[in-house]
Design a protein around this nucleic acid. Structure first.
Length: 292
DNA sequence: CTTTTCTCCTGTATGC
DNA sequence: TGCATACAGGAGAAAA
């Protein structure tokens, strides 16, 4: 499940294998992969063909290729991997993958770029670059903790102003981007904070420590090539990440907490799962308990 | 306005 | 064996 570290691994792969090349052709299968491109897949193909890839960039979990026409007009091909999206660099003669949705061919007749996605939560769309060189359609996505534009004081202020569980805040990409369910649970475990704790009840220093943990755990995952739990996530070259053995909380139900030995538990939260140590991450008292 | 819930999708694992 | 169900979850629309 690609979060910031996995997406960054893919971005580096794109920078290595795709930047500097000219797209000669693009094939899009089905309407779903380009559903966010409101003008439709044919328009997307027409605008992408014969452009040169100038940069591969990322904010949070969004990736984009900066494309330039021969006339010098720049645009962004925005990509999101969703849950199971993969970008593969493959020889043109390689057989089609089962869930192949798009195929980029290049003028140099070198390897293709393929977008493969089993669950089709991912997709791509063209966007205009705004004054800060960010695609205009992701203006609502906050900078991630590795972005020079990241302002942790501003994030803390947003969390202090919210009347909602801290985990919701960590997962809200308009507050801070790049954090998904895995790294949210890991950061909360490291900080010793229960995800149901209302964010406005945490002190500013505690929020700062939690965000520091989030950046650190993602930085460690990035250094190890991204996390993977099944065969779905594959980086741009087709190699799986291997950080999963280092996780302390996520997916560790029934295993002893690395700090205190209490068994990690799983609970349902926001239509997904939360994993935490009931000893190190005490549940906040409910209003009813306070009244008792 | 803020916050929460719902929906999209398919392969794998599990239980009866 | 076969069928039903649970599960994985990012993000935006819709609802509250």
């Amino acid at each position: 499940m690609p979060e910031l570290p996995e997406v960054e691994v893919v971005r580096v792969g794109l920078a290595t294998h795709v930047v500097g090349r000219t797209i000669e052709d693009l094939q899009v299968r089905g309407a779903r992969v380009a559903r966010r491109h409101l003008a439709g897949p044919d328009d997307l193909v027409a605008r992408v063909r014969h452009t040169r890839v100038e940069e591969a960039r990322r904010r949070g979990k969004y990736l984009w290729l900066v494309l330039a026409t021969p006339g010098g007009d720049r645009s962004a091909l925005l990509l999101h991997l969703g849950m199971s999206g993969q970008l593969l660099v493959k020889p043109p003669e390689a057989p089609d993958e089962r869930h192949l949705h798009a195929r980029f061919g290049f003028a140099d007749d070198g390897p293709e770029l393929r977008f493969v996605d089993q669950r089709t939560f991912g997709g791509m769309a063209l966007a205009e670059l705004d004054i800060d060189d960010i695609p205009d359609t992701i203006g609502h996505i906050a900078p991630d903790p590795f972005d020079p534009a990241y302002d942790q004081r501003a994030v803390i202020a947003r969390l202090k102003a919210r009347h909602s569980a801290i985990k919701r805040g960590l997962l809200d990409q308009t507050v801070v981007s790049g954090i998904g369910n895995i790294y949210a649970d890991e950061a909360l475990w490291r900080a010793g904070v229960h995800g149901e704790r209302p964010s406005d009840t945490l002190s500013r220093p505690a929020l700062g420590r939690l965000l520091d943990h989030a950046r650190e755990v993602m930085g460690e995952a990035l250094a190890k090539g991204g996390t993977s739990f099944d065969a779905l996530y594959v980086n741009v070259n087709g190699a799986s990440g291997y950080f999963d053995r280092s996780l302390a909380a996520y997916g560790q139900v029934g295993r002893p907490c690395g700090r205190c030995g209490t068994l990690i538990v799983r609970e349902h939260f926001m239509n997904r799962s939360s994993y935490f140590c009931p000893q190190c991450q005490p549940r906040p008292r409910t209003r009813a308990e306070v009244l008792i």
